[in-house]
Each structure stands twice: as C-alpha cells, then as structure tokens.
Computed example of a mutant assay.
Amino acid sequence: MLVEIDEHGMLSHARVRHARSPQIERGKRAGAITGIVVHQTDADTSASSLNSYKRPKANGAHFLIDKDGTIYQTAAIYQRTNHVGPLKARCLIAGKCRPGDFKNVGAEGMHRIEMRKPPGERYPGNMEAIGIEMVGRARMPVGFKPSGKELEWSLERIRGEHGIFDTPTAAQNQSLSWLVSVLADSIKIGPTEVFRHPVVSSKNITEAQGANWKLSIPTP
C-alpha cells in the first residue's frame, strides 16, 4: 500500500501523528533510502522519548510507536538521523569474509571497513536507513548482582549489557507491520533490508527481539 509523502519527507496518513523534532535531524541524505532499522527506546513512555528529542543535538529515529500502537513521525525521512551506530560486518553472516579479516580493529575499525562498501554489500547506516523506535524499557533480571569487573561499571553500562527489553505489545507490532509495509511499498525497500538494531550494530541483543513486522495488514 502506498502512502503520500510530501517534499519534506513527512507521511500523510490518519495513522501517523506528526511530532517532528528538527533537533534529531542531521541534514539531507546524500543517497537513496535502502533499509529500515527497528529499535526500542529504553524508556517507559512515549512522552519521555518525545521530550528527549527536543534537546539540542539529541539523537533519535524517524518514527516512534507507543505501546497502544500510536505512530509518531519524529523526523522527516529524507533527513539523516543518528540511530544506527557502528556497523557490524554483513559479510560475516553471508559467509563472504571471516572474523580474522577484522582482527584487532574493534567496532569502529569494522565500521570504517564496512562504510567503504556500497549499501547493498553492507548493512544500512544512518545515511541510508529509516529508524523506527518502539517504546520499551530494558529491565534488570530479578536478583541480578554484578560481579568481577562489572562492579566498576556504571548502572547504564550494566543495564546495556544485562538488561532485558520489554516484549512489544500486540498493538505495537500491528502498527510496526503497517508502517514497514507502507514504507517498503512507497520507497521500494526490499524485504531482506529490514533489521533489528542488534543485527546491524553491537547493541543489547534483546532490543526489539519481540518485534514482528510481518503480520497481515487489513486492507483499508
């Protein structure tokens, strides 16, 4: 299903509420949109994320899906936002390279190597990807206690490593499926180019683990 997209990159549809925050936009894209990356906010409410997007030099994604399924567009899709982070090597999954090819380079070094490749041969980065955030918090397992070097870590680092993200609600997944479908149809994004955040970048592996963008979409 196609949706109307204005010259600024804002969707015109009754299901999408405009909540554009120019503070998270980083300028026009230099090339085509080739993928979608699905995130979770690590926050309990949409209000907390929407408010954070208004801060100077804030980071955020193009869309935010609340727990009740409400979709907010928070950035124009033709604008780049910082939401992906350093890229993992897609060639490792495809079997076209080996871990040894990235020995001792670290996450930033791997990202630099990947960014020398054309978009189709690597994961979509900030310049090519539309970001979709789903409201959801990473919570510490009951009874968890840090040990060893973790005792010196900040609480945020511990949560980033060991926290378990909320399972998206049914309403969120229905809205996610609709949004991915209309974006893919309208911008011509292939079905293999939609990813959970931890797939493309080194993030908490439970982020968006319950995200499902393949549900059937009722005909409007």
Rank of each mutant, 00 (worst) to 15 (best):
V16T: 10
S48R: 09
R116Y: 11
V199F: 03
V199E: 07
L2Y: 13
Y72A: 02
S52A: 07
P141Q: 01
T169C: 07
A43R: 08
V200N: 00
K117L: 14
T169L: 13
H162D: 04
E193V: 03
A89W: 02
L155N: 07
E114V: 02
Q40N: 08
R55C: 06
P118Q: 11
A208C: 09
F195M: 04
D6A: 04
I187E: 01
H62D: 07
P198K: 09
T45F: 05
R80P: 03
T167C: 12
R26N: 11
K54D: 14
G136F: 05
I33Y: 03
D166V: 15
E207T: 15
M115R: 12
G85I: 06
N212K: 08
S186A: 06
H197F: 14
T169V: 11
Q172E: 12
P146I: 13
A184P: 00
A94M: 13
F165A: 09
V37L: 02
K28H: 15
N82E: 15
N82T: 13
A32V: 05
P191H: 05
V200R: 01
I205L: 12
G160H: 09
R29P: 04
G109I: 07
L64T: 03
H62P: 01
E156D: 13
R112K: 11
H62N: 05
L183V: 06
M10K: 15
K188C: 15
I93V: 14
G69A: 08
G95M: 14
A76T: 10
P99W: 08
P198N: 12
R80V: 10
D166S: 08
R137V: 11
H39Y: 13
